[in-house]
Every structure is written in structure tokens, then in C-alpha cells.
């Protein structure tokens, strides 16, 4: 069977996985993720479009079925930094969201909910497809400085400064309430990721992703590489991973024995599970240390 294996091509990852597992199995998690992203957007849109009010509001703050309040904890902290103590509803909502992401993994938001993910995934696909080489990639720690900067800006101006430009809320709010000139911001993010920096926005700059990664240290839901001994070093997982540095410790036992990807920056997108022809990866829980040969 190994004879059927094609030569790996970092620009076209996944050919091996499709050949071995079939197209559907090689895109299972990607399809589930898109379903999740579009489904959540659909729940919000069902109200204004069809009059079915399940969820009102947007990702910044929402009300589900008139009972469940949800608020973005990052936004809540910015409000506090700006010097305003919000009403209990917002605080309750932010706590619910924070607890959920502490359990599921903060950056699950990035991969499964955030509307900008579709934009930057498309840009990343474009880079691979047209072999656009990475240039001018900023340091991946920039996002933490920017995160601190957004709080400092809120504190000094007394306003939610970052919300003027935040592409994440601009995208979601725009789709629900009217995009206006917000489209230019999103186009800028797309072009930046496509032409200037590989995974530039989500992987290096976005302070919202940085914030949610801070909620990822205790995540129960994790991707692991239990069959890492079967790895044939095709590098396909590194090519598609939005945070490639998180794979190595688990896959190559670099600094850790556990096959679980423990890095809080992992978005649990599951693309590595899809793309691996050797079925090395699977979605599991944090304490699953089993290595199956």
C-alpha cells in the first residue's frame, strides 16, 4: 500500500490523505467547523431574515431564547479598563462564556465561532495554492502586546477603542447589522494574510485570539497524536496548521512525553486530523496519555 503514496508537496497538502481516506474523511473536521461557524451565524441571522428569534445581538453580547445572556469576556474587561462597571447581565454573560472556554479551550472560539477565520483560512489556502512565499511575518508575541495595548488604550481614552477597528466584531456585526465601510477592514485582513504574512492576522496579531489563548491553559478538549510513531514526516499537518509550533512537542516528543497538544495557542480546529494520511491525530481530552501504535 505504501507504494500508492504520493510525493508530499507543502503547497498542496492533503493529497495523500485524500488518496488514503477519501475526500470526505480528509475534510471531516473542516466541514464540521464550517458548519459550526455558519450555523452560529445562521442562528443570529434567522431573526432579522426570517423572523425566527433564537439568538439576538451579536458576538459582543447576545441574548438566547430571551433567557441566556452571553457577553464576550474580552470586551467586558475592556469596559472595566475604560472605567465603567457594567450591569449584572453583562458580567453574568461574560462569566458563562469564560467558563465555557476554560473548559473547551479558549481558542476553540477562533476555529469554531469567529467569522474572520473563514477569511484568513481562505487567504492561507490562497497562499498555498499560488505558492505565495511568507514575507514580513511579525513576531507571534505581537498579539500579546497588542492585547495589553488595547487595555491601555481603553484606560487612557475611557472608551472601547479597539471596538472601532476590531475585525472580529466588525465582521460579525457587519453581517448582522450592515457592513458599511467595515468591508475595507476585512479586505485589509485578507490581503495582509494572502500577500504579506502567512497566518498574519489570526496567528500573530489578533488580540482577541491572544486573549482567548489565555483561557486555554486548562482546556479539557485537546487534539493528540496517539499514533505518532506512524508519522512519515510528510509535513502536511505543519502546512495546514494555523499555529504550526504547537504540533512539534506532541508529535516529536520535544520537551514532553504526552502525545496531547497542550499549547494554549492550539485552536482545536482539527485540520491536522483531516490532513494526516497516517491517521496520527485524534480529538480527545487533556488527560488522554495513551499512545496507540
Amino acid at each position: 500500500m505504501t507504494a500508492a503514496r504520493r510525493r508530499p508537496d507543502p503547497n498542496l497538502p492533503g493529497r495523500d490523505a485524500i488518496a488514503r481516506k477519501g475526500w470526505l474523511a480528509a475534510h471531516k473536521w473542516l466541514l464540521l467547523r464550517r458548519t459550526s461557524q455558519l450555523g452560529i451565524l445562521g442562528l443570529f441571522l434567522a431573526g432579522p431574515w426570517f423572523g425566527i428569534w433564537i439568538v439576538k445581538g451579536n458576538l459582543s453580547s447576545s441574548l438566547t431564547l430571551d433567557v441566556l445572556p452571553l457577553t464576550d469576556p474580552y470586551l467586558l474587561l475592556q469596559i472595566l479598563a475604560a472605567g465603567f462597571v457594567p450591569a449584572a447581565t453583562a458580567i453574568t454573560g461574560a462569566l458563562i462564556v469564560a467558563v465555557f472556554y476554560l473548559l473547551a479551550g479558549g481558542r476553540v472560539f477562533c476555529a469554531w465561532v469567529c467569522p474572520v477565520n473563514i477569511i484568513t483560512d481562505t487567504a492561507a489556502w490562497g497562499r498555498r495554492r499560488f505558492a505565495i512565499k511568507a514575507k514580513h511575518v511579525p513576531d507571534a508575541r505581537t498579539r500579546y502586546w497588542l492585547l495589553a495595548g488595547t487595555f491601555a488604550a481603553a484606560a487612557t481614552t475611557g472608551a472601547l477603542t479597539w471596538e472601532w477597528v476590531n475585525p472580529v466584531s466588525l465582521a460579525h456585526r457587519g453581517l448582522l447589522f450592515g457592513m458599511g465601510a467595515g468591508l475595507w477592514f476585512l479586505a485589509a485582513v485578507f490581503l495582509y494574510d494572502l500577500l504579506i504574512a502567512n497566518r498574519g492576522w489570526c496567528g500573530h496579531l489578533c488580540p482577541m485570539g491572544a486573549f482567548y489563548s489565555l483561557l486555554g491553559k486548562t482546556a479539557l478538549l485537546r487534539v493528540a497524536a496517539p499514533k505518532r510513531d506512524a508519522c512519515d514526516d510528510c509535513m502536511d499537518c505543519f502546512a495546514v496548521c494555523p499555529e504550526p509550533r504547537v504540533i512539534r512537542p506532541a508529535l516529536k516528543k520535544a520537551g514532553q512525553e504526552s502525545p496531547v497538544i497542550l499549547d494554549a495557542l492550539c485552536t482545536t480546529c482539527g485540520r491536522c486530523i483531516d490532513i494526516c494520511g497516517q491517521k496520527v491525530f485524534k480529538l480527545t481530552h487533556r488527560f488522554d496519555r495513551r499512545s496507540s501504535p
Binding site: 511579525p138 513576531d139 507571534a140 508575541r141 505581537t142 498579539r143 500579546y144 502586546w145 497588542l146 492585547l147 495589553a148 495595548g149 488595547t150 491601555a152 488604550a153 487612557t156 481614552t157 472608551a159 477603542t161 479597539w162 472601532w164 477597528v165 496579531l205
Partner: peptide, 22 residues
Amino acid sequence: AGLAGAAGSGCLMALGAGLYAT
């Protein structure tokens, strides 16, 4: 150098957003 770059660009972006917002 990397740290300085990260801090510099991160703070610059926040400053830019702050100016725009102001």
C-alpha cells in the same frame, strides 16, 4: 530584537487604533 519588534508593533497598532478612535 524579536521582543522589541513584537512590543513595538503591538503598541503601535494599539496607538493607531487609539488615535483613530479619538
